[in-house]
Amino acid sequence: MKILIADDDPVSRRLLQSYLQKWGYEVAVAINGAEAWRLFEQDEFPVVITDWVMPEMDGVELIRRIRASQRPNYVYTILLTARWQKEDLIEGMGAGADDFVNKPFLGEELRVRLRAGERIVNLERTLADQNRALRESRATPGAAADHPGV
């Protein structure tokens, strides 16, 4: 699975990258929200992990844009931030973030949250595939005759 990370702090970027690669993910790295948005537009990323406070474009704005984009597949977003007040959580989740991880973070905590995100992404994909198959079967002439109904 391909993950996009955005963080202006080089140590955090390095940490995230080394963890994700160790766990078998393919990683793309951006140094701020604007660069992350450019990368996002050029490729498909099922998961995006972003810092909140960054120059040029912050993490919340990045997530808003991702939510507003017309992508066929769901994108799971995690805000990884030193902001820890309840109000921050509400604002971040309100902007469309799926999860919220505080810095400093434990590697294992991030890993299990990523797994949860992966499950949701996979579920969304399965559901989308099934819906697509259903739509296609309904659109096919004669298909209805196989299921006369009651």
């Binding site: 702090d9 140590v11 955090s12 030193a82 820890w84 810095k103 400093p104 590697g107």
Partner: peptide
């Protein structure tokens, strides 16, 4: 690689640690 961002401290001190990092008392170089 271990830095301020992923240092493991005792569970009972994690919130305190996070608070001190957040407040800027502890800064990663």
């Amino acid at each position: 690689f271990t830095a301020v961002q992923n240092l493991e401290v005792a569970p009972s001190l994690r919130k305190l640690y996070g608070y001190l990092v957040d407040r800027g008392c502890i800064e990663q170089l």
